[in-house]
């Protein structure tokens, strides 16, 4: 005797319910106890359950249980999986090549060439000795404690993913800034990407691609990290002084001239701020992505957790912080240079 029997009785659906009975009706513990004692449970009024799927199922077995619903979602996904995979697999294959190629390249270059290269690159990008020194000493320290190759793997993944985020994110942001309708359509997607717990990204991806493929973590990182650069590109271009864009129109600039000579240069500080956020978010995700075989410092963190190797976990965690500080400072200094050139 379930709480909501009366609904189905009054609606005259009793036959429909019994017809759909599966027979193996699951009983709660208290129900079983009551059955054993040979009495029916009387639910006190203040414990009346919410008419949820499970509660309704107790009254009418034809109604699906919540458990059936989740497995329905799963089956639906699995059914769609093959065709999805058929489409997505070839499209995303270049991502695997990029990630693997970049990893190979970064590891193939000997440390005594790569470290100076990175240092020179930094100096070229930011023109600030303090930051260049920070980069140099960070890498020397990482190498000294034998975390160099892990850090380089992490860095390689971040480079590739950030590059792709910019490649796709900036044009998407520009499209959003040009049309209110596009903006309205894309913002919910961005909101969803930003609020979905990072582990949830991984679940459907694991089903779609095999865990050994590098694009699996690549996609997870890009989806997670692309949001800020899209948002800030959109914002940056919308914030460009209306007087200046009007002047561009008044002098007969084409859409392209306006975009490349006026809007993007003036939106650059905002775009760079987005880039900084994108880099930081890819670093956050690359650690989590070690769960799905992303190489790098995350692997050590995972080892620390799995084997309770406190030292390994703490030291690699510290290395990640170092890397984060370094990436943040470098990208912020580059941002400051962009700011300077537009004089806001």
């Amino acid at each position: 005797m379930a709480t909501y029997d009366w609904i189905f009785n009054t609606l005259g659906l009793k036959d429909w319910c019994d017809g759909g009975a599966t027979g193996n009706k699951t009983l709660s513990l208290s129900e079983m106890l009551a059955q054993a004692k040979g009495e029916t449970v009387q639910t006190p009024w203040y414990e009346t359950p919410f008419p949820s799927l499970d509660a309704l199922n107790a009254a009418c077995p034809t109604v699906a249980r919540t458990r059936d619903m989740t497995s329905g979602v799963e089956n639906g996904f699995l059914a769609a999986k093959d065709s999805l995979k058929f489409v997505l697999d070839p499209i995303t294959q270049p991502l695997s090549w990029l990630l693997d190629g970049s990893l190979w390249l970064f590891l193939a270059i000997p440390w005594f060439i790569l470290i100076p290269l990175l240092v020179i690159g930094t100096q070229f990008a930011v023109r600030k000795w303090a930051i260049t020194a920070l980069v140099l000493f960070t890498f020397l320290f990482l190498a000294f404690i034998d975390h160099y190759s892990f850090a380089i793997e992490t860095l390689s993944i971040i480079f590739v993913c950030t590059f792709l985020c910019v490649l796709f994110g900036v044009p998407i942001g520009i499209m959003m800034s040009k049309s209110d309708r596009t903006q309205k359509a894309i913002i919910p997607v961005l909101d969803m990407l930003q609020t979905l717990p990072s582990f949830v990204y991984l679940i459907p991806l694991i089903f779609l691609f095999s865990v050994t493929e590098s694009k699996l973590y690549g996609i997870a990182i890009i989806l997670y990290a692309i949001v800020p650069i899209v948002r800030l590109t959109d914002l940056g271009i919308r914030l460009v002084d209306r007087d200046v864009t009007e002047a561009a129109d008044a002098f007969g600039m084409t859409f392209r001239q306006k975009l490349f000579k006026v809007e993007i240069p003036l939106a650059l500080p905002n775009i760079m701020a987005g880039l900084n956020q994108t880099i930081m978010m890819s670093l956050a995700m690359v650690v989590i992505a070690s769960l799905v075989s992303a190489p790098g410092l995350g692997v050590l963190v995972l080892r620390g957790i799995r084997n309770l190797e406190l030292g390994v976990g703490l030291v690699s965690g510290f290395c990640i912080v170092l890397l984060a500080v370094l990436l943040d400072r470098v990208s912020k200094a580059a941002l400051a240079r962009a700011d300077e050139s537009t004089h806001h």
Binding site: D243, V244, A247, A250, K261, P265, L266, H344
Partner: peptide, 13 residues
């Protein structure tokens, strides 16, 4: 036609 603006509207960069 060319135009001169109240707020100058020069390209700051």
């Amino acid at each position: 036609m060319s135009m001169v603006f109240q707020k100058f509207a020069l390209l700051p960069h």
